[in-house]
Write a protein that binds this DNA or RNA. Sequence first.
DNA 1: TTGCGAAATGACAACGTTGTCATTTCGTTA
DNA 2: TAACGAAATGACAACGTTGTCATTTCGCAA
Lengths: 336, 336
Amino acid sequence: MATMDKKNVSMNDVAIAAGVSLKTVSRVINEPDSVRESTRDKVHAAMEALGFRANFAARSLKLGRYGCIGVVLFHLSGGAVDMIDGIADAAEERGFALTMIKKRAGEKMTLAEAARRMSQLPVDGMIFNLRQMVDDFDTFEAPKDLKTVIITPMEHPTCSTVSDDQEGGARMACEYFLNRGHKNVYFVSGKKESLSSQCRMKGWRAALEARGIEPPEPLQGDWNADSGYAAGLVLADKPDCTAVLAANDCMANGVMMALRDKGLSVPDDVSVIGFDDELYKTIPNSILTSVKFRHRELGVRALNEVVAGLEAPSSRSRTLVSGVLVERSSVKDLRA
Amino acid sequence: MATMDKKNVSMNDVAIAAGVSLKTVSRVINEPDSVRESTRDKVHAAMEALGFRANFAARSLKLGRYGCIGVVLFHLSGGAVDMIDGIADAAEERGFALTMIKKRAGEKMTLAEAARRMSQLPVDGMIFNLRQMVDDFDTFEAPKDLKTVIITPMEHPTCSTVSDDQEGGARMACEYFLNRGHKNVYFVSGKKESLSSQCRMKGWRAALEARGIEPPEPLQGDWNADSGYAAGLVLADKPDCTAVLAANDCMANGVMMALRDKGLSVPDDVSVIGFDDELYKTIPNSILTSVKFRHRELGVRALNEVVAGLEAPSSRSRTLVSGVLVERSSVKDLRA
DNA sequence: TTGCGAAATGACAACGTTGTCATTTCGTTA
DNA sequence: TAACGAAATGACAACGTTGTCATTTCGCAA
């Protein structure tokens, strides 16, 4: 059972070994039913013996498509794992592979630059994961033959976008407070440049203003617990503070710890809601009510949108994936 | 300024538009110095006007390589983000893109199956991210023309492997305890099927046995805080328990909370060390000493190993990336 | 101006597949 | 057995690049 030394085994090699024509080998692969069983077996045997594997480049060249979707990671954060997971699973299901490139740390990558690089790679369409603002966002035009979907809370003039409904999630949390008799809601933000943080803040503002409440000055955090703790120390001194919305769970936890250290109880004195619902992983018996986004679903939707748009790349849609409020006991009902 | 309607603009189209030969266009792209400046400008102008982008499939077919490295995600966990980040950055730096496929939830994927699928895709080499055991691990043979690197703590008979030194990290933590006068170390494990957990446990055992200490029965956890809390309740009742090594920070936190709820102090009564050093993100003023692995570095090494092996796919190496003990104040020095 | 070597450019084949269309083989019926 | 339509198979071109080698153009010295 000698193994060939030739670098790559081609269909032609298989054809010769099996004593059939090149085209017949092609048929065995692409439309097996159209070839007689005895012939098929001969060909399969030859493929096996020679270790044949179809050449991706040649196949794509002929077919004019790759069966790959490009993913550009402008930003790779914790929540991105689930999103990538969703994209990858959906891709798998629809028979696509992913081609990935990433903005390097410190590098300044525009959408145009990302598109330029992607269009040199084997992709039929692409997904941009964009969590911060980028210079050419509004002026960017996607290649006409490459369906492009941007994961971002901002609307884009020509590309399809997919996003969690961060604003809606924040509104939902605020209304949850207000409906339970709270007269005001304080807000602890994440990093300034984060679009997520900006959107959550926007939703918070909107919800308060919709009820004619003047939003108090938001407290600036940086996503980590320590910044939440600092914010909590400040909030503990505000007598009108009965409800705090923190832009993520880590900061919410910091806030809660600070309140306790100041002798205040959650939820009896102050109610708190966070975002992402991940505190239970780290804190035993966590009581924090939290707005959870379905990142996996987000990825699935993004991929499906790309695939759906492969035939009509210039189509445009906007998808919002709603969040879910995971209720625990960190919010007190003041009406009771 | 009319835009062409032709689907794909080829080099030939550019050549005609610029009034030069096909080959000259090719030269402008691949060896610009070999073409006269005036000609080059004409060609560039034509490319611009027609919106030319090189065809990946044709180029790869001719060159016999893709400039892509395949990544197979058998398992996608939190720590994987940093690793992917490292892989992606290193790939970027060396001019490679990534082609990714993922094991679907519930699907049972063997190494052979992964290799088979990857070898139909545009890749010059591949990386398997394997955090759990898989049926054909020992018998697997990588395609002879496709350099394969496996990220896994296990040694493989024929493939290169890269791993954090989990065992060494656990040993380091144990010795840290023992060197400070602790007579024994209790262990809280992660999920049974996790290789990380198994390796950490192995290192813990080895460190104790090296000093002639009989390791106590390990406590079974599931990575989450609640399981750590449960373990902590048990440990609080053991009078000889002065040191606890938990297989991750979340469980370590659970252990600490349980100890406190039982009236014990960390570190005065019991010392604790965790893994991953991520508690500070969630807990303000975190005191937990923790073993941190450099997942990013892991990814970088894996990619570099693949690229280095592209010319000699059958070469084999084993890389261990050491962990770092991040010291805080959760360990008491009993010698003092 | 002519001739020469070097630089610039071009013609053509090849990479390994699939689509088109022609040809061969098969199973059936007259 | 002959004749026929359907099924199976094959020959050849084409996809868009790059490598090889031949040809043209250029700059410069005689």
